[in-house]
Simulated assay, not measured.
Amino acid sequence: MGNPNTSICIINDNMVPFATFYILIFLIGMATSLVALWAFITSQNAKKCINVYLINLLTSDFLLMLALPVKIAKDLGNESLSLTIFHCQVSSPLIYINMYASIIFLSFVSVQRYLQITRSSKLLRLQEVGFAVLMSAVVWFLVLFVNVPNMAIPIKGNITKKHGLTCSDIKEDLGKHWHALSVFLGMAIFFNASAAVLLSNGLILKQLWCRRESDPEDQATARHAFINIAVVTLAYVVTFVPYHAVRMPYTFTQIEVISDCSLKKSLFLAKESTLLLSILHLCFDPLLYFVICRAFRHQVTKAFSNRHSVSNSDPE
């Protein structure tokens, strides 16, 4: 006979505030990502190594936007069993596919920026478009390998509909075990990618600071680049670090290593709060495109300049 405390433990009964923020993120992310898509499509100079990674990052963001409406409906209190199953089997794995694809592509962008600044002739192959395309294919294979089984492994045949049904409630043991394994693999991806991001951006900041002090004529450009890289690094840390700090403890509640109801609820709320932070990168990414990609920046600036010129020339 199961523990009665676990059968009545409802951890997801206060999700409406999260849904409100997700709606805002979805609307802002959709608008800015469509602008980014237009800029990359119309740009004549988008086929560079770093731009390949940025375009893949944008593709990942559109996958996230496919998943967010389902999560929003679920968080608003829709307890349809079919919606819950679809969220657990499709939209939730899509969110994690986006997260880890984004983390890896952001690390590639950081490394590529470092290579551009150092202009190392020994590493020219790493800056070729063909290499970027190959690495992008490897990234998609990796994140799909980790997360697609969460979609494909069968769930329980007879699911009892109840208030507060969670994804772990509908999974068989195999599904729970693979989910836990995918979390471990995701953590490994995060730690390796974060090392690349922090090391590359740290070395870039060091070079820019030295350049700022040694070349007075280049101070303004170096200071501007220094601020941009520092902001991008801070956004990465704020967006992804808190989630991974609480992800593993929360996973222990899903596999019943932690069974105390109040602790489970606290960890669930911490996980959802930090997941919201991580999904906020949907709004930050277009800013990254503007800072990093010259072709993107040129197209957007030209479009707004043309619009401003037309409005000024209109007769009153």
Rank of each mutant, 00 (worst) to 15 (best):
H244D: 06
S91Y: 03
Q112A: 15
A36P: 02
L280N: 10
S43P: 09
S136F: 02
K264T: 02
L76T: 04
T301Y: 13
S182A: 15
N192P: 00
L288M: 08
M248C: 03
K264M: 07
R297A: 14
M135T: 01
D173Y: 05
V231N: 05
D169Q: 04
L83P: 06
Y289I: 10
I10W: 01
R113L: 11
P216I: 07
T253I: 05
K264L: 01
I227Q: 10
T239L: 04
Y289M: 09
S92R: 04
H87V: 00
H163W: 12
F62M: 08
I170D: 11
H163P: 04
F105S: 05
S168P: 05
M151D: 05
L269C: 06
L58A: 03
V246G: 13
S7V: 12
L263Y: 06
L83G: 08
T84Y: 01
I8Q: 15
S194Y: 01
A132M: 08
R294Q: 15
N147A: 14
Q207L: 09
I255H: 08
D169V: 06
F240T: 01
S110R: 00
L66D: 03
I292S: 00
R125K: 10
Q299C: 05
S259G: 08
N306R: 15
L174S: 14
N56M: 13
S168I: 05
L198M: 09
A235E: 11
